[in-house]
């Protein structure tokens, strides 16, 4: 019988000893954490997408509380999130512009294929193959869908050999922007129409040979734009989102029908 009590005493003592040790060390090694960090984190989306530029939602929340990071970086949480964080941090809620991804290529199957590629069906690998991939256009979308795989929100899909973004689903986390080996994906303001879906900076004649869809750099859009919002840089038309009034004249003048503006506002054309 004494044996049992001895066992109880020894193990109990051991447990109590370790408990005491842990209690002491929890005081000694106490790290003060700001309770606001958890509150801020609950305002964020929790997808850990990394679109804010921090390692994850909790890292961003810590950066807001401790380093005073800007509070409008969480695109998935949107304006609601900004309001919540502003209330916790006691700062003014800033208006945030929702940004969505946009693929600067409309080639896909319309672009010529220069050789049969039988390698790994992955853009990053294919982009390292001879000539930067199987398409004749060295700038365009390879269509293997690495961005589709990278997207956590199911906003991307491959349509006719080129990646397409569903702006309703896109949360602007930039996962695809970082994945695309051709650097084709940009963030544009949500609802913005008529960005130029091409990245080919070759001269028009060369572009015409490799792709039925590419921008030739013909300057027609630039000439007719009443708002000075579209310019040809390096044989490629680039739109200035801040100046564009959505008048749609560039979409009409483009000989390649490259610019797509279904909701153009014709009345804005007069203010030249």
């Amino acid at each position: 019988m004494t044996n049992v009590w001895l066992a109880v005493a020894v193990l109990g003592g051991l447990g109590a000893f370790f408990g005491l040790l842990l209690a002491i060390s929890s005081k000694v090694f106490y790290v003060k954490t700001d309770e606001r960090i958890e509150k801020v984190a609950s305002c964020l989306n929790g997808a850990n997408c990394g679109g804010c530029g921090y390692a994850g939602c909790s890292a961003y929340a810590a950066a807001i509380v401790e380093d005073g990071a800007p509070i409008d970086r969480c695109t998935p949480a949107g304006q609601e999130g900004v309001k919540g964080i502003a209330a916790i941090m006691g700062v003014e809620a800033v208006e945030m512009q929702r940004m969505v991804a946009f693929v600067r290529c409309s080639g896909g199957d319309k672009a010529q294929v220069k050789y049969a590629y039988n390698g790994l069906q992955d853009c990053t690998v294919a982009a390292q193959a001879i000539g930067g991939g199987q398409r004749s256009c060295a700038y365009g979308c390879l269509g293997f869908g690495s961005c589709v795989a990278a997207c956590r929100f199911g906003a991307l899909s491959i349509v006719d050999g080129v990646a397409k973004v569903d702006p309703e689903k896109c949360q602007g986390c930039k996962a695809c922007v970082e994945t695309c080996p051709k650097h084709l994906i940009d963030l544009i303001p949500y609802g913005f129409e008529g960005a130029v879906p091409c990245a080919n900076t070759d001269k028009g004649g060369i572009t015409r040979k490799v792709c039925e869809s590419g921008c030739l750099g013909c300057h027609l859009c630039e000439k007719f734009c009443p708002h000075n919002a579209i310019h040809v840089v390096d044989n490629l038309s680039v739109k200035d989102y801040s100046k564009c009034q959505n008048c749609g004249i560039c979409a009409e003048k483009c000989p390649r029908k490259l610019i797509y503006m279904p909701h153009m506002d014709v009345s804005k054309r007069t203010t030249a």
Binding site: A7, V10, L11, L14, F18, L21, L22, S25, F29, Y30
Partner: peptide, 26 residues
């Protein structure tokens, strides 16, 4: 008390991991 080894070891490991966690955090 060698028949209590398993129990005692579990106790030691659990306490140890807790301690290591606190130590690393600090």
């Amino acid at each position: 008390l060698t028949y209590m080894q398993t129990v005692a070891y579990i106790l030691v490991i659990a306490a140890l991991v807790q301690f290591v966690e606190m130590f690393l955090k600090k």
